[in-house]
Structures are given as C-alpha cells and as structure tokens.
Design a protein around this nucleic acid. Structure first.
Lengths: 338, 338
DNA sequence: AAGTTTAATGCAATCGGTTGCGTAATTAAT
DNA sequence: ATTAATTACGCAACCGATTGCATTAAACTT
C-alpha cells in the first residue's frame, strides 16, 4: 500500500511552502500560473488526494447532507431519494441516508447520529409514530438547516416541500362521486401525519360539497401494510350500507384491495370503484388499471435538494419561505370508470 | 445560536486538562470514576457533542461506508439498501449512497467522490455500462475494502455477495419446460453483467438438458425498461415458431409483458407462460400472478453490510473469501400453470 | 521511614489542510 | 533612479480531538 501523500510532501518535493501548495490546488489568485501547473503536475504524479478530514475540520463543514426517511424500500421514497441524490451530487455534496422504519425511537437515534457526523443540513420525512419533536431542536439551535418533505412538520424555523394533500384528497373523492359513488370508504394511514390527515380532510370536504354526509364507519385508519388486508376486507363485507367506492391513501394497498376484492367476487369498477394515491408502478399493472393521484416524487426530491443547496450557498434564505407545494394530478383509469 | 462547546471549554470549566476530558468521555480506564462523572455531567450540561471532524482527522477513519448502486428507485435495490442500512447503523456506521444511473461515467465520478470523502469501505453494484474498472484501483491500492454485490466483478482482492444466477436461470427455464413449453423466449438485461449472462447460461443449459436446441431468435438483450416493451411485442408477434414461454430477467418487465400480451389477445398462461425474476411486489399484483425467482434482497444487503463491518473490525478477513452465495427460490404462481 | 507500585492526570506533538498577515521580488510610476 | 504599487509566496496560528510519555500523588512493601 502506498502511504498517503500530503501537501507537505508535495511542498518538499516542489520546494515551496505548504500554503502555496494548498492555494495552488485551490486555484487561489495569488499563485502564479507556472507554480500552479507545477503543483498540479506533482499532485497528479504522486497520486495526491486531498484529505477531506482535515478540510472538514478547518472549514467546519462536511459537504454532506443527512436524510431520514421512513423506509428506503418504497417506490415513492426511493424515487424521491433518486431526485435528491441527483441534484446534490451534481454540486459536490454527498447524501447520508438513514431510515426510521416508522419508529420514533429510531428517528431520534438517526437524528443524533447524523448531527454527530456533522451533516451540513438535514432532510426529513417523519415516521408514523413521531409525536415528540425534541430531536430536531439540536439542529435548529445550532442553526443547521432543517427541511421536511412529504410527511412534514410545521415548525417556525423549518421549510417544507410537499403537495396539497387536502386538494388531492378532495379531487380523488369528488372523482368517485362524479362516477356515481355515494358510499365511499376512505382507507387512510395514521392521521398523525399531515399527508393522511389532510387527504382525509379533503375527502370529508368533497363529501360535504356534494351533500353526502360523512359516516364514521367509512373511515379506516391503518398502517397501509398490504399484509394486513384482511381487516379491510372484513370491514367492507360487514358494512351495513353497500360500499361502492374506495379511496385508498396508497397505490400498493389499493392494488392489494383490488386483487382481494376481485378474488371475493366483487367486480371492479362495476360494484366498487377504487382510487389510489401516488401513481406507483403497480397502478398500471394491476387489473383493472388503478386510478390515482400522480405524486411527483422525483421532483419533490430534486426540489428539496435544490432548496437546501441554495440555502447553504446563501442564494436563498429558507427562513423567509414556509412551504413549497408541488403540483399533483388526478389520473383516471379503469378502476373508476362508469 | 450557541457556540459549539469543545473539550477545551470543558477542561477550563472543570479545571482539568483536555486530555483528561477526552479520556473521561471515552471511558478510558486511567481516569477515576468521580472525574468521569464530573466530566459527563459538565458535558451534558453544556450540550457538548464531539466534533467528528477532529476525530476523523486523528483517527483517519470516518465510520462511513460508501455505496454505489445503479438506481435507487427500484424495488430490489431499495430493499438491499434497507438491509445494509439496518446492520450498518446498528454498529454506528453511516451509509453514503450514490447512484450511477447505469452510466460508467457517473460510476467513476461517484467512486472518486466517495474516495475523497474518506469512506472506510465501498460497496458496489455495477452499472450496465461499466466495462473499465480502473476507478476501483484507487481503492484496492489504498487497501480500502471493496465489496461487490449482485452485479459483481471478479477482482482478486474483492469479495462478492450474490445468488447463483446460473442455477436460478436454469430452474426458471426448466420450470417452463416442465409446464410444457418448448419454444421459450429469454428476455435478458445486458450480458456484460454477471447477473444476466449467468441467467442466460442457466437458460441455455436447461434447454440443452431437455433436448431443446437454443435458437438465437429466442434471445433478446434489452435494458429491461418497461417503457420499451414495443420491441419485445413486435418480436413475439413476428417470431416464426410460436413462442409458448417467456423467461424475463425482471419482474417489472415481466409484469409489463403480461399486461401487454393480454391486451393483444394472448392468454396467459394458456397461450404463453411467463416467469420473472426477483419476487417483486408487482409479481403478486399482476393478473395472473407471476411465477418468479425469489431473490433475497434484504438479506443480501444485510450480509454485505455485516461482512464489511466484520472485515473493518478485523473479525474476518475478506481477502481469504471469494464469494458468498445466497439461497434463491423458485416461486410457482398462475402465470406458469398448466 | 525509605523505597516501590499503582493510580490519576498533564504535556505536547500529531492528524492535514486553511488563511490572515507579513515580506521579498518584480513591475510600474514619476 | 527612487518610490510606489503589484505580484508571488512563506510564516505560523488554528480547527478539536487523540495518545505516548512523563509526572505527581497516593498506597503499599518490607
């Protein structure tokens, strides 16, 4: 193994000071062109690579951004991350990614770990469980920028990137109503999270606007895990009024519903119409095709990444901005046709 | 904003030397219990957090592991990453994740960036394109452990985690044969990558073992992008001998095939039987259910993570091990039933 | 009581760049 | 030719923790 080459080694080789080598490598204006060339050549020749540890220490900056997501293995989240990674890498930053696995405890630990490892900023999408937010105080009190995306939190110092879930929930529900549904079941995630509570709001508003009274029995709070579909099926079968429409807050779960309902003899969309959320890949695969809300995950990731970078570079100041809302889109497919 | 507290601040407050504070915080045996307690208390009281930049510099180690994957937004990859993240976080390491987007150029850049940022090890799944491997020399020559998973490379110093793709390809193909198929199309990814070339080998071996001669026309090298399904459909329609079985190297693509074939009037599995690869979520959603090869992504991630950690801790030496092969499993579903 | 262990802590160098300030060398101005 | 202005570079402190090697203080031997 070759031992690592430092600017001190280069400075000896070139007979200049380490300061000159450092400035030369960083293209500092006060170094002459020839000297820069000599330095660059020597650096290449001896395989010099800058020791980021030392740079980080002096600059007190790691060029690294932390991310906490509920889970990595979801189509939506991995798409968001792909967007982030793309813009962030382009400007020389790195992404440290960790998952909370929907646990508040793990989210806290991750936040602390990332704080410790010196991330320059933190991007978070909250876990299902989280209801105490003290672990973010460490960041705000240290002026480390904090940005929430998708599953957000309305802290005064923080900035959020999301879609208008209330409007989207409204549109999805109204679409079902327009297609003739009158007794619509809403299968939601945990209401603690904005994304679900707001879609629920939208759902209720759409009902009201169309003179349909909301029934408690038509609301199901779940963890949207396709493996726990049984409870939903039981609920549907046992409902007193025949359910003729379902608005599910996740495509995966909606696809499972379609699959299971079909198996039980229900015809989709004739007996029950179904609409999902996310425009996941499965929505085009399931039969019948799933109507859904297009959710711009990749753009959300890019935007979150761009915003945080711009803030770090001092180009924009997130403190004056509250939230960025992305455009969503209703996608009508077979599962809700008349 | 509170200014950051250092061990020097604490040492002044407590009237001890910085060395004592450092040792106290690290539970060094030569510090008395009372002093340790005083130090711990003061640290908590003043919100001290260790400056990882300084630690990294002295220790020349970042407790960070780099990962390069082709894409983040794939069900399989995000599952692998979830496995890695889980084991790696548990032992106090962080994961820096980057994606090559199937481009050799980007893979090279990522490798360099990660090297620069001082990762302690690198985990790689190769891009489609990559055919030159010089960017990994920087790692091997510096004795930075390098581990390939899934899409691997057989370098002497490197360690790989994968499944037996040849056997899996054999089983998938033979299953189709057992179900009565005699003219089986294989839709593959780029043969440059082991995962695809070996499945192809397995496919050919299974044909041969069953006295079916391999037809060039029954092999399609693609990039497995569902958006480019047209070419495949054309191929199937134009094939001289009626194709009665398809072995696709990806569930997503297989699901798209089923969808499209059904649309064109083919009956699955009566006219054509289809088997995929990966046991992705969509395989259970598509109608008919897709037979496939179960591919232990989460375990693969865990194993890769555990191996690299064990190596870094000196518990095992990867240099003596060549490859770890995980168990796969044939999953028979409706798409290949008789 | 003098010498020897043992326990507890401090000194100071080190990791590898960065950067404000000073200085020598070169060029421009008068 | 002398002074002023640039240009090019070096000095040395600094970022914050770690650690080998003293050193001091306390405990133990004989």
């Amino acid at each position: 193994m070759q031992k690592k080459v430092t600017i001190y080694d280069l400075s000896k080789i070139l007979n200049v000071s380490p300061a000159t080598v450092s400035r030369g490598l960083n293209d500092h204006p006060s170094i002459s062109a020839k000297t820069k060339k000599r330095i660059a050549l020597a650096a290449k020749k001896h395989g010099y690579i800058t020791n980021k540890f030392a740079v980080n220490l002096t600059k007190q900056k790691s060029n690294t951004i932390g991310v906490i997501v509920p889970r990595l293995n979801s189509y939506f989240m991995s798409t968001v991350l792909a967007g982030m990674e793309q813009v962030i890498n382009k400007v020389g930053y790195n992404l440290i990614i960790s998952q909370s696995l929907e646990s508040e405890e793990k989210e806290k630990i991750n936040a602390k770990t990332l704080l410790n490892s010196g991330v320059d900023a933190l991007l978070v999408s909250l876990s299902y469980e989280t209801s105490n937010y003290d672990h973010f105080i460490d960041y705000t009190s240290r002026n480390i920028p904090l940005l929430f995306f998708d599953r957000v939190l309305n802290l005064p110092e923080c900035y959020t990137v999301l879609i208008d879930n209330k409007a989207a929930g409204y549109e999805a529900t109204e679409h079902l109503i327009h297609q003739g549904c009158t007794n619509i079941l809403h299968i939601s995630g945990h209401l603690k999270r904005n994304v679900y509570s707001e879609r629920f709001e939208g759902y209720k508003n759409a009902l009201q606007a169309n003179n349909i009274s909301f029934q408690e029995a038509n609301f199901l709070e779940t963890d949207l895990n396709p493996k726990k579909i049984d409870r939903v099926m039981k609920h549907i079968k046992n409902s007193t009024n025949k359910i003729d429409g379902i608005f599910v807050s996740s495509d995966n779960f909606a696809a499972s519903c379609i699959k299971e309902l079909t198996k039980e003899g229900y015809r989709i969309p004739e007996d029950i119409k179904v609409i999902g959320f996310n425009n996941d890949f499965v929505s085009e695969i399931v039969s019948p095709n799933l109507s859904t809300i297009d959710y711009p995950g990749f753009k959300m990731g890019m935007l979150a990444g761009e915003s945080i970078i711009a803030h770090l570079n001092g180009n924009i100041n997130l403190e004056s901005i509250n939230a960025i809302t992305l455009r969503h889109k209703l996608i009508k497919r077979e599962s809700t046709s008349k």
